[in-house]
Nucleic acid binder design. Sequence first.
DNA 1: CCGGACGCCTGTCGGC
DNA 2: TGCCGACAGGCGTCCG
Length: 277
Amino acid sequence: MPELPEVETTRRGLAPLLEGRRVTGMTVRQARLRWPVPAGLPDAITGQTIRAVDRRAKYLLFRTPAGTLILHLGMSGSLRVIPGQQAGACAVPPGRHDHVDLRLADGSCLRYTDPRRFGSLHWCTGEPEAHWLLHRLGPEPFDTAFDGDRLHRLSRGRRTSVKAFIMDSGIVVGVGNIYASESLFRAGIHPGRPAGRVGLGRYRRLANAVREVLAEAIAAGGTTLRDFTASDGRPGYFAQTLNVYGRAGEPCPGCGRSIRQRRIAQRSTWYCPFCQR
DNA sequence: CCGGACGCCTGTCGGC
DNA sequence: TGCCGACAGGCGTCCG
């Protein structure tokens, strides 16, 4: 489900509800997620106060004095806070896919839902950046380390498609399947072009396009295709703004000719073969 | 090192 | 209506 804008939307919704709150307990109903939920996690986090809700790539970081809960939403994960006044802690009966509850001292409850179970939870007592899942990640798209020069430098000699390249989390984080298609459209680059055969000028345009698309999607509260909702239950509105994603056969907003769909990098990809070269 | 395929899961949708 | 395959917003691992 979530790419960077959806994770950031979730983070912004959760932070004011969680920061400063003490964890009074954790219930794990389903520990078999993308990675097993550590057996010691409930004991480790209970009694801790959440100091900050941060994000690195598509990971949410719930920081406490004793350690950090690292959470990834996978393809279908979501988080929401159930308010305390709803007849006591977590009185809302858990559904089939409500795998984890984090209870808080004010009676509210952070509930993790994930039908496909590609998400994961980890406990990290050191620097989260050094965690094995995070330590090889490239720069954030809004970091100055991410620019066209970096894309150009790292792509020399690479024969993989520029789409696969821009989705590689070691190159830049946060660009998933929706925003890869959208960014490449905006930059006028054909998604199937070999990464090593894209010049510096076009990579500068692509870096700008990635930042613009992600920023606009965050401002719109993310993209709701099927079921994404922010932690307050509201959908994101960026879907209306999508230029090519999911629009096979529709007219290209640039030239009016038909948008094409093809599998590139093992994922469905949408593009305009005339505007993108 | 690189690039591509695979697998982890459940839900939904289109075609027959 | 029912069945079946294809596909879905991610990503670590494995193999050639």
